[in-house]
Design a protein around this nucleic acid. Structure first.
Length: 652
DNA sequence: GGACCGGAACCCAATGATTA
DNA sequence: TAATCATTGGGTTCCGGTCC
């Protein structure tokens, strides 16, 4: 373990990667990061080896991720930039492609924030011209997609897909962090040993994983460790069944992000064209609702068998999200590298480390591994070992009370260096939460009661609704204030004659211009992701004379055989914009709804319509084609304030 | 008890990113 | 540059709960 000698002999000359922690964690500066880390580790383990391992891991995560990932947008790409004096030659690192970035020490002081270079190439720093070319290419691709995919194509909205910063878990070695031994005892199963406890996947939480309405956690098959040995024959057969013939496998999820709460979930396998995903569905949102997990967090999922049943444990690899999202508020261990590598200070530490690593390897993966290792060594050993003579374990707010003896470090294993927590602000302390810690303000008893209540509700739901029951989340439904259109007289307000000339059709008279529905806009109508306007059949005026025979036949077809009727929507809420939409009819158990789908959100995006607004939809025929006009009658507030009626008319 | 809004649940195509 | 993969999110269905 190269350079460890320094940490014992204090011979910095032997250590070209010397990292000046005295300056990094100045007594006068913010010591929150390291102290907090130490204190937490003291709370979760009394085993010193284990504590050291945890500390090493945390430091490596913080240091490497901050420098490698969150700053990659600042990586040097421009050789003309005065700050990029000595761009790393590709030949130095890895043939023509990869390199470890390097910045001249002398130049950095000019504007360190811009100039700092790190691993990986820069991302997303294109010029306007480049942006334009890229945009044109994308547009062509979309248009080509329409032509090539034809009728079957469902989505071509042109909406730009969110760019997701990619992180390579393997390069960072995080996919190899296996806490099986640590987690296993936390499950606390008293009735027999759990079998086959094993890390299955290390995963970043994406937007879809965090989405309430998707309510699922995806686990791409090719990221799952030992997938072949993962499921037994029976389970493989079940998951291989067509979707219509299986509900998946019932599994238990132990959620160590929040007091080991157990969720009964379903495991499904979705086969796509060229890959497959395992999906944990049903009650995933219960885990999300604890508020512990955030987008971009990293989690690990371990599997095991209890009484032959498949179970999972979820743990959060905490704070990773910060390092991507750069949301320092979420990270009480935020490590201020701008201060650590001060313009005026000695920048030898980090650059020296990079330079040394460049000298010993040209392989970037290896370089990254070395950097991680070096940082962890330096950070941990300096703070844990070299300070041992000054470290404390005192709760009386003295910073140096009792030196940490060597025997304590390796013998009794019950001491972790400690600096008084009174140095830390209450605000910071309150927000702290760490690996494996329970979450929120609830006690264990409260958690247990809540878990029992939810469990009872789940069981009751199954009993009452039987096999077909899909949902029983226990989430309280939003209460919607009801308004009686008839009482308000809105359903009789007919502006046909006023609106008709606004359509401005010059080539012939429009026919059958008629009010069809007066409607309040509900949340679902306003929802972007539903992208539909519902029109309950029993609210439509003159429903019998509304559609011609051909249209009635089309809409009566089973859903699999029709795409609905193409209609035009004139949107008078915003400059007579016209949308081509589809009219469908959804037959429910006891009623039916017409739905205007496709491009409804384009109307919403104008920002004119709000939830609870009242709109009217008129229909007419132009060249025999069915068309609609939408007008806004009044907004929800207007109704309350008497624009179209008195407050007393609002139903309770 | 019926109507229907809200949204859970599901499927899978589109698309950006990566790899060959 | 093409092929492949992983993720996103659009589209659809239908159940639960509330209100009349």
């Amino acid at each position: 373990m190269e350079y460890m000698g320094r940490l014992i002999t204090d011979d910095h000359d032997r250590d070209p990667l010397y990292f000046d922690f005295d300056r990094e964690f100045d007594d006068d500066g913010d010591v929150e990061g390291f102290d907090g880390m130490l204190q937490h580790i003291r709370e979760v383990t009394s085993d010193e080896d284990e504590a050291l391992r945890l500390l090493t891991q945390k430091v490596a995560e913080k240091f490497v991720w901050y420098n490698v990932t969150s700053r990659k947008n600042n990586c040097l790409k421009d050789n003309n930039d005065s700050r990029c004096v000595k761009p790393l030659e590709t030949s130095e690192m890895r043939g023509n492609r990869d390199h470890i970035p390097f910045i001249s020490k002398k130049k950095r002081s000019d504007s360190k924030k811009k100039s700092r270079s790190y691993f990986f190439s820069s991302v997303g720093r294109t010029t306007r011209a480049e942006d334009k070319i890229v945009a044109q290419r994308k547009q062509k691709k979309r248009i080509r997609g329409i032509d090539e995919r034809g009728e079957g194509a469902k989505r071509l909205t042109g909406k730009k897909k969110r760019k997701v910063e990619k992180v390579c878990l393997k390069k960072l070695g995080f996919d190899q962090l296996d806490f099986s031994d640590e987690i296993k005892p936390l499950i606390s199963w008293q009735e027999g040993p759990d079998k086959d406890f094993k890390l299955r996947i290390t995963k970043r939480l994406f937007q879809t994983d965090m989405s309430d309405y998707h309510d699922r956690l995806s686990m791409p098959v090719n990221q799952i460790k030992d997938f072949e040995g993962f499921l037994n024959d029976e389970e493989n057969i079940e998951l291989a069944k067509p979707k219509s013939e299986t509900k998946g496998i019932e599994v238990e999820l132990f959620d160590l992000t929040g007091a080991s709460h157990i969720e009964t979930m379903r495991l499904r396998k979705w086969d796509m064209n060229t890959s497959s995903c395992l999906m944990l569905t049903t009650s995933w949102k219960s885990v999300l609702n604890k508020g512990v997990l955030q987008e971009n967090d990293f989690v690990q999922i371990y599997s095991f068998r209890r009484n032959e049943n498949l179970c999972f444990v979820l743990i959060k690899m905490e704070y990773m999200g910060r390092l991507i999202s750069d949301d320092h508020d979420r990270d009480p261990l935020y490590f201020d590298f701008d201060r650590e590598f001060d313009d005026d200070g000695d920048v030898e530490g980090f650059d020296g480390m990079l330079q040394h690593i460049r000298e010993v390897t040209s392989d970037e993966d290896e370089a990254l591994r070395l950097l991680t290792q070096k940082v962890a060594e330096k950070f941990v050993w300096y703070n844990v070992a070299s300070r041992k003579n000054n470290c404390l374990k005192d709760n009386n707010d003295a910073r140096c009370v009792e030196p940490l003896e060597t025997s304590e470090m390796r013998g009794n294993r019950d001491h972790i260096p400690f600096i008084s927590k009174k140095k830390r602000s209450d605000k910071k302390r309150k927000s702290r939460s760490y690996f494996f810690s329970s979450v929120g303000g609830t006690t264990r008893a409260e958690d247990k009661i809540e878990a029992q209540r939810k469990h009872k509700k789940r069981i009751r739901g199954r009993d009452e609704r039987g096999e077909g029951a899909k949902r029983s989340t226990g989430k309280k439904k939003r209460k919607v204030e009801k308004v009686c259109l008839k009482k308000l007289g809105f359903d009789q307000l007919d502006f046909s004659d006023v609106i008709k000339p606004l359509i401005s059709w010059q080539e012939g008279p429009d026919k059958d211009f008629k009010l069809r529905i007066t409607k309040r806009l509900f949340q679902t109508d306003m929802s972007d992701y539903h992208d539909r306007l519902s029109m309950p059949v029993n609210q439509i005026k003159d429903f019998e004379g509304f559609l011609n025979d051909e249209e009635n036949i089309e809409l009566a077809k089973p859903k699999s055989e029709t795409k609905g009727i193409e209609v035009e929507l004139f949107d008078l809420t915003g400059a007579s914009h016209i949308e081509t939409m589809r009219l469908r009819k959804w037959d429910m158990n006891t009623s039916s709804c017409f739905m205007l789908t496709t491009s409804w959100k384009s109307v919403l995006n104008k920002g004119v319509l709000q939830e609870n607004d009242f709109v009217q939809i008129y229909s007419f025929r132009r060249n025999e084609n069915l068309c609609f006009v939408l007008i806004k009658v009044c907004d929800g507030q207007g109704c309350r304030d008497g624009a179209f009626g008195s407050r007393s008319n609002i139903a309770n």
